[in-house]
Amino acid sequence: MRLSVVGCAGSFPGPDSPASCYLVQAEQAGRTWSVLLDLGSGALGPLQRHTDPLALDAVLLTHLHPDHCLDLTGLHVMRTHHPSGQVSGRLPVHAPPGAADRLARAHGVEHGESVEDSFAFVELHDRREVAIGPFRITPYAVRHPVPAFGFRVSAGAVTLAYTGDTDSCDALAPLMSRADLVLAECAFVEDRDTERGVHLTGRRAAEAAVAAGGVRRLMLTHLPAWNDPEVCRAQAAQVWCGRAPVELAEPGLRLEL
Rank of each mutant, 00 (worst) to 15 (best):
P13R: 04
P15G: 10
P15Y: 07
D16G: 11
D16F: 08
D16T: 14
S17E: 09
S17M: 07
S17Y: 05
A19D: 08
C21M: 03
Y22L: 14
A26H: 01
E27Y: 05
Q28I: 00
Q28D: 12
R31M: 08
T32C: 13
T32P: 06
S34R: 14
V35I: 04
V35H: 05
V35Y: 03
V35E: 09
V35P: 08
L36Q: 02
L37Y: 06
D38Q: 08
D38N: 15
L39S: 00
L39Y: 03
A43S: 14
A43W: 10
L44R: 04
L44Q: 01
L44T: 01
G45D: 15
L47V: 04
R49L: 15
T51R: 14
P53R: 06
P53V: 10
P53N: 14
L54S: 05
A55P: 02
A55T: 10
L56N: 09
D57I: 11
D57S: 11
D57P: 05
A58V: 12
A58W: 01
A58M: 04
V59G: 00
V59W: 00
T62V: 13
T62M: 03
H63M: 06
L64E: 02
P66M: 06
D67C: 09
D67T: 05
H68S: 12
C69P: 02
C69E: 12
D71R: 05
L72V: 02
L72Q: 06
G74A: 06
G74T: 05
H76K: 02
H76Y: 11
H76N: 02
V77I: 14
R79H: 04
R79C: 01
R79Y: 04
R79D: 03
T80L: 13
H81Q: 13
H81I: 10
H82I: 05
P83A: 01
P83S: 02
P83H: 11
G85M: 12
G85R: 06
V87R: 08
S88D: 11
S88W: 14
S88T: 15
S88R: 14
G89D: 13
G89F: 11
G89E: 12
R90T: 15
P92R: 08
V93S: 04
V93Y: 05
H94G: 00
H94F: 15
A95G: 09
A95Q: 10
G98A: 07
D101G: 08
R102A: 11
A104P: 04
A104K: 07
R105M: 08
H107I: 05
H107Y: 15
H107N: 14
G108W: 12
G108H: 10
V109H: 13
E110D: 12
H111Q: 12
G112A: 14
G112R: 07
S114E: 11
F119G: 00
F119N: 02
F121V: 10
V122R: 14
V122H: 12
V122D: 05
E123L: 00
L124E: 10
L124M: 13
L124S: 07
H125Y: 06
D126M: 07
D126W: 09
D126P: 10
D126Q: 03
R127C: 07
R128K: 13
R128C: 09
E129T: 15
E129V: 12
A131D: 13
G133M: 08
P134T: 03
F135S: 09
F135C: 07
F135E: 08
R136V: 12
R136Q: 13
I137R: 03
I137K: 02
P139E: 08
